[in-house]
Simulated scan of single mutants.
Amino acid sequence: MSPLLHPLPVPAGPAVESILPRLERALRGEGPPLLPVPESDARESARLADALRPGEPIDDVPDADDVALVMATSGTTGVPKGALLTSRALRASGDATHRRLGGPGAWLLTLPAHHIAGMQVLLRGLLAGTTPVIVDVTQGFDPAELPAAVAALTGPRRYTSLVPTQLVKALDDPAATAALADLDAVMLGGAATPLPLLRRAQGAGIRVVRTYGMSETCGGCVYDGIPLDGAQVRIADDGRVLLGGPMVASGYRGLPGHPAFAEPGWFRTDDAGALVDGVLTIRGRLDEAISTGGLTVVPQVVESVLADHPAVRECAVLGLPDDRLGQRVVAAVVPENGRVPTAEELRAHVSEALDPTAAPREIRLVDALPLRGPGKIDREALRSAWNR
């Protein structure tokens, strides 16, 4: 009989340590498959349960008996999918990560553990035989907590994983910046890292390791553009990135035959990229490209240019319907402290680097960007707010 999927309520804050024994059994391939859900968010837990059906058998893939975790995607379509991750895939991911970083170590958790990035912090610590130090982010990330948390980590190697918005906040706090610089590596993923942010962190002595991956690949499987041991990268004819290797999921919960897993051992992403001399560069999501005035604009490319402007702290670019252009490019900008950039200067800044058609026709200054999941910009929320 196929194993039943069991819910795994994931507490917030230090109480997350209570789930470590169950995760340890999952890594060993023992016990039932687990669906992590946020214990403190009944609405989100119900949404995940409705989509991924805990309590019912897992019979979606031939190796269902080996599934250890069903990790929910962040659900850009509004309906989350569940990546079926085996214990073998999770161990392959964790072991390859430690080899790339220089060896096993202690991990600092600053992310929600029901998402793959936070979950991997816990799993890597278990593989290393260390107990995680936990920063409670229930009420948001407070960089002032980093110095004490980093000091509590035991050696010989110490790591953490952040999303770019957290790093932006940490760099505004000298004590938090110094604490991060004391770590052997700061993994940075969940969203593209603006080049100015990377330069600023590196200038402060922080060893940033940019990661690329998703729930379907047990989290990051490409570090600083280079695949981890065992991971593989291909670029399809349409520029789509394909990821392969032992850390790839077995499929999606309840979606046998999904085209993303049509080729055994490979996952078809929704990202466009280029592979030059073995180094992967992500250009942006294929489904977020903007067609404006006959030109295709990739939002992430425009965001990278905007982020290089000294008055821009964070930004998000999207396309809105336009009767004349098909779509018009617009941008939401979080200004740098004390600066108020004008639309004209930001348009000129983009036009100097890209085709003028890519320059945003409207710019709105906002206090913060809406997020979905850990660190990913919620473009649909921005689009809805823009049209109000």
Score class of each variant (00 low, 15 high):
369 L>W: 09
330 V>E: 12
146 L>I: 03
83 A>Y: 11
157 R>Q: 10
88 R>M: 02
161 S>M: 11
234 R>I: 05
36 P>D: 07
264 P>M: 11
61 V>F: 11
232 Q>T: 15
246 P>D: 04
86 T>E: 09
134 I>P: 05
261 F>L: 08
91 R>G: 03
333 V>P: 01
302 V>R: 02
123 L>K: 04
343 A>H: 01
29 G>Q: 10
264 P>S: 06
166 Q>G: 06
113 A>C: 15
223 Y>L: 15
187 M>V: 13
60 D>K: 02
290 I>L: 14
248 V>T: 15
8 L>T: 08
231 A>W: 01
110 T>M: 13
84 L>I: 00
174 P>W: 07
186 V>M: 02
53 R>K: 14
210 R>H: 14
264 P>Y: 02
251 G>A: 11
99 R>P: 05
67 V>R: 06
121 V>E: 06
358 A>G: 11
122 L>F: 03
284 G>I: 02
111 L>I: 05
166 Q>P: 08
323 D>S: 14
197 L>T: 08
364 R>P: 02
148 A>W: 07
69 L>G: 05
304 S>C: 03
160 T>N: 02
128 A>V: 14
336 E>P: 01
56 E>C: 01
344 E>V: 15
217 T>K: 01
160 T>F: 08
378 D>S: 10
149 A>P: 00
11 P>R: 08
261 F>A: 04
339 R>A: 12
214 M>V: 08
303 E>S: 10
325 L>I: 08
243 L>E: 00
278 G>Y: 05
132 P>T: 10
285 R>H: 04
264 P>G: 03
79 V>L: 13
284 G>S: 13
78 G>L: 08
211 T>N: 08
40 S>N: 10
158 R>G: 04
178 A>I: 09
292 T>E: 04
354 L>V: 03
297 V>H: 01
273 G>R: 06
54 P>T: 05
13 G>D: 12
343 A>S: 09
301 V>P: 00
244 G>W: 03
56 E>V: 04
1 M>D: 15
106 A>P: 04
384 S>F: 04
189 G>V: 10
309 H>P: 09
139 Q>V: 13
88 R>G: 14
382 L>C: 00
322 D>V: 04
342 T>A: 08
184 D>A: 09
90 L>D: 02
249 A>H: 03
295 L>T: 07
108 L>T: 00
66 D>V: 03
298 V>H: 11
